[in-house]
């Protein structure tokens, strides 16, 4: 990352940290919805572990966001007292679980981006961000390995599992583009040497997913249209609001409850 650095303003840095933390928060909650419902015991526990990893990373990102903002909000406050328009996660991670194949495809598409983002963030000019990225990258490496194996296993599996994985890929591919489109916040992070240019991660991402889809006998959709509006918060899908009513119900019903 660049060595000539321009300090980002507090608002931009807060925004960037919310994006990192909201991705792991929303995906972590989604994955936790499988707890007790996964097709086999082994997958149930593996998904719960993944969810817990992601929620743990969320605590680190959102606590740091709260410190940067300096308005007295900690990770819990940010997670449970913001409404849908204040969330900055990618549209991909708020998409519903669907069947098991759809959940695994969503996980794979996210993990492939997440690991390369974290790897780049380990070189961040901000020492705290680099430290969170380093800790998270070990978990993300395992998540990606597991998701990759499962995508290949199910894609190149039975007729039914192949069909479900192809449907999942067709459904979710339009949410991939958003991960690589830069806006003013990203540009400020690049200028400060804090985070990589999102577009710079695309070639390695494409190589990885193409290899996996080939091994999984899946066909990537030709159309590269990408929905946007999640990380800017301008246009979340209808699903996020519904998810938050579940995730935040306790704090909504009993504000500031503690235990």
């Amino acid at each position: 990352m660049s060595t000539s650095q321009t300090e980002p303003n507090k608002g931009e840095l807060f925004e960037f940290l919310c994006r990192m933390g909201d991705n792991t928060l929303v995906l972590g909650h989604r994955v936790s919805e499988w707890c007790g419902h996964a097709p086999v015991l082994e997958e149930d526990i593996a998904l719960a572990n993944t969810a817990l990893d992601l929620i743990g990373q969320t605590t680190l990102w959102l606590d740091l966001a709260g410190k940067v903002e300096d308005a007295g909000r900690d990770a819990d406050r940010l997670a449970f007292h913001r409404d849908v328009w204040d969330f900055r996660n990618l549209l991909l991670v708020e998409q519903p679980n669907g069947d098991f194949g759809q959940t695994i495809m969503r996980q794979f598409l996210f993990d492939a981006w997440h690991l390369s983002q974290l790897t780049a963030l380990m070189e961040s000019s901000d020492a705290q961000i680099a430290a969170i990225a380093e800790k998270s990258s070990k978990e993300a490496t395992y998540h990606l390995e597991r998701a990759t194996d499962t995508v290949i296993g199910l894609g190149d599996g039975t007729d039914e599992s192949h069909r479900r994985m192809q449907n999942a890929l067709d459904l979710l591919w339009p949410y991939v583009g958003e991960m690589f489109v830069a806006d003013a916040v990203d540009e400020a992070m690049v200028a400060a040497g804090i985070a990589p240019d999102p577009a710079s991660l695309r070639p390695a991402y494409d190589t990885l997913v193409n290899d996996v889809f080939t091994a999984a006998t899946l066909t990537k959709p030709q159309d590269d249209f990408g929905h946007r509006g999640g990380k800017s918060g301008k246009r979340h899908s209808e699903h996020l609001g519904h998810m938050l009513t579940q995730m935040q119900w306790l704090q909504r019903a009993y504000p500031d409850a503690t235990w």
Partner: peptide
């Protein structure tokens, strides 16, 4: 896959 599952089930 058994190693991965064992990691998740038995080494948490």
């Amino acid at each position: 896959m058994a190693i991965k599952n064992a990691r998740d089930v038995y080494t948490r």
